[in-house]
């Protein structure tokens, strides 16, 4: 898309650098620096020796290198537990939610759906009105989802907003395809699984990406709906280390020479780096999704 438009432009004969360009590129460079430097700052902090770091002034490279902070975090079994829970809820959450929401979207998109108007308004109403934090908490408790792994999955199973996004994508699929399949004797389930799901891949990838990011980054539901350690997610674990400065539980049984080289700040930086690595690794893939049509399809018209 971008290349096509670039090609349509008349080729420039001479590149002129105006004052406007100079200011623009400088400002953009500073903006990029503002976003990139913090990541660098945390990385070098996590690789620094604690006592030395505490003296301040470590901004470009560690003065005294040390991996002790990572040793402390990597010895913590809670990190692995949190990682496992987070991966499990992300994978399970994305798959179940996409299947369920895409299925309902298929039904809502269908012309033959009985009581269509009722379903339409029943869905829309919830976009504007809700019960609030405490009534929802009460519901979670009453359903027996409190302190249960399913609390991460079940409430996110369906989203009206995603349903609308997916069904607006369905509109681009020729309805005749569906009718032809029915004439050949295919049931609605078959049409959904064999025709609509494969064709809706771009929108499912985009919606799935956002569900996944939500799962990966959430700590609110852990705070509200769980009490046992086994259900702590990675972000909740991180939140406790970063904002409450609570040391990892492993620090009690570490050799003193390792602990000596760390302070709570460098440990929390190491935890931040470890938790961000998966996001960093997946970013190129994610970016491809961002710039493919999926993200903007259906949201911009004209």
């Amino acid at each position: 898309m971008k290349q096509r438009i670039a090609a349509e432009r008349p080729p420039k004969k001479k590149k002129k650098i105006t004052l406007f360009d100079a200011v623009l590129y400088t400002v953009m460079f500073l903006f990029v620096l503002t976003l990139l430097y913090p990541l660098w700052y945390v990385l070098i902090g996590s690789l620094s020796e604690g006592q030395d770091y505490n003296g301040g002034g470590v901004f470009l490279l560690p003065r005294v290198w040390s991996l002790s902070s990572y040793q402390v975090v990597f010895r913590d079994s809670e990190l692995y537990m949190g990682f496992l829970i987070t991966v499990a809820r992300t994978v399970l959450g994305v798959v179940t939610s996409l299947l369920f929401t895409a299925g309902v979207a298929y039904a809502m998109h269908s012309r033959e759906l009985p009581a269509k108007n009722f379903f339409h308004w029943f869905n829309l109403f919830t976009l504007f009105f809700g019960g609030g934090t405490i009534p929802f908490f009460l519901l979670i408790v009453s359903l027996g989802l409190y302190d249960n792994f399913l609390v991460y999955i079940v409430p996110g199973l369906y989203s009206v907003y995603n349903m609308i996004v997916i069904s607006s994508f369905y509109k681009g699929i020729p309805y005749e395809l569906r009718e032809a399949a029915h004439i050949d004797g295919a049931s609605e389930f078959t049409v959904f699984f064999m025709i609509y799901l494969p064709l809706a891949k771009p929108v499912l990838a985009t919606v799935g990406l956002w569900i996944a990011v939500g799962h990966w980054n959430s700590y609110y539901d852990t705070m509200l709906y769980t009490s046992s350690k086994e259900l702590h997610t990675l972000q909740y674990y991180l939140m406790r280390i970063v904002t409450l400065s609570s040391l990892p539980s492993s620090s009690g049984n570490l050799p003193p020479e390792v602990l000596q080289d760390t302070i709570s700040t460098t440990i929390s930086y190491a935890a931040i780096v470890i938790a961000s690595i998966p996001v960093l690794c997946l970013y190129p893939v994610v970016q491809k999704l961002c710039f493919s049509q999926g993200v903007t399809a259906g949201s911009v018209k004209g």
Partner: peptide, 17 residues
């Protein structure tokens, strides 16, 4: 079949919304 699919969404919303 499609009624059941739409109904599943409605039941979910009834409970959680």
């Amino acid at each position: 079949q499609i009624f059941c699919m739409a109904l599943a969404g409605a039941v979910f919303l009834f409970v959680f919304a």
